[in-house]
Amino acid sequence: MTAASEKIGFVGTGLMGHGMAKNIVEKGYPLTVIAHRNRKPVEDLVSRGATEAASLEELARGCSIIFLCLTGAPEVAAAVAALKPGLAKGSVIVDCSTSDPTVTLRLAAELAEIGVDFADAPLSRTPKEAWAGTLDCMVGAEDAVFSRIEPAIATWAAKIVHIGAIGDGHKMKLLNNFLSLGYAALYSEALAMSRKVGIPVAKFDKVIRGGRMDCGFYQTFMGYALEGNREAHKFSLSNAYKDMRYVESMANAVTLATPMTSAVKNSFASAMATGGDGPEDYVPHLSDFVARANGLK
């Protein structure tokens, strides 16, 4: 099947998925979507040329490549089970969620029994890049499957790395998120310490910004901590905590000591336990929870 003849399905048109799906349909692919709780993204995509399916089974019947962009492994497993009755032999499911690699491998084995391929293609960056079509993507897939899905992924990703076999994309994504969420925990504690010892956040930022310790993640994090933009990095604390639990689980499976992983996970667990479980509580807001735990406003 050529790239031009692929019919794309998209499940999960949330903060990241809306922009990704927008790029798929605007760059010429037939696109079918399905609504969940929020209809606005689906209505926008339909206005751009997408078709809305009434059920996941109906979506599966009309698509050759189906992208999933969901919260985590339980949601992915549930979606695959609902898609399964409508899947045709030779179709591909591409999971762009940050998921548990053990679940990825199990789902891939189950789908292989009915002639359906599976790939994991998790993302990096923010909804801003999703809308612009400039996300990073790390893919776990067999070579032939990767070659088939790469043109569709390229509609919304500027950097695509084929990591290796099925499950390797999710493993790499967890490593990536361990680093980024580790930065968040470090920044939050450093900012609280800076204030405690009498160095204002603005002066702290003048030293770090533009120096060797600066990076893109630091800048979006400080978009809230310094400038007060609550939507500077729209990745929820609850998703961050979920991802760190997956990182810890992956480490446990290979008997790896994880003092740093556990410390980062516990930083997010503490925020979740003290009220950070709302849908608009984002990763940079961790700095508030660490500050309050240390007697700061």
Rank of each mutant, 00 (worst) to 15 (best):
A54R: 12
P122D: 09
S91P: 10
I65E: 11
L123D: 06
D100R: 11
S97I: 00
L59K: 02
A60M: 11
A53P: 07
L111H: 06
T134Y: 09
L59Y: 00
E57C: 09
T71N: 15
E57A: 10
A119G: 06
E113T: 13
L107E: 10
V80P: 01
L83F: 06
E58H: 12
T71I: 14
A109Y: 12
A112I: 10
G49S: 04
E75K: 14
A78H: 04
L68N: 07
V92K: 03
G62D: 14
S55F: 12
S91F: 03
A78L: 10
S97P: 11
V94I: 10
T102I: 15
L70S: 03
T71W: 13
A81H: 12
S55P: 10
A50Y: 05
V116A: 08
A112V: 11
L123I: 14
P85H: 08
V80C: 03
E57H: 12
A119N: 02
R106A: 14
G72Y: 09
L123E: 06
A82Y: 10
A132H: 05
I93R: 01
P127Y: 07
V94A: 12
D100C: 13
A53L: 06
S64E: 08
R125P: 07
E52I: 04
S55H: 13
G86C: 06
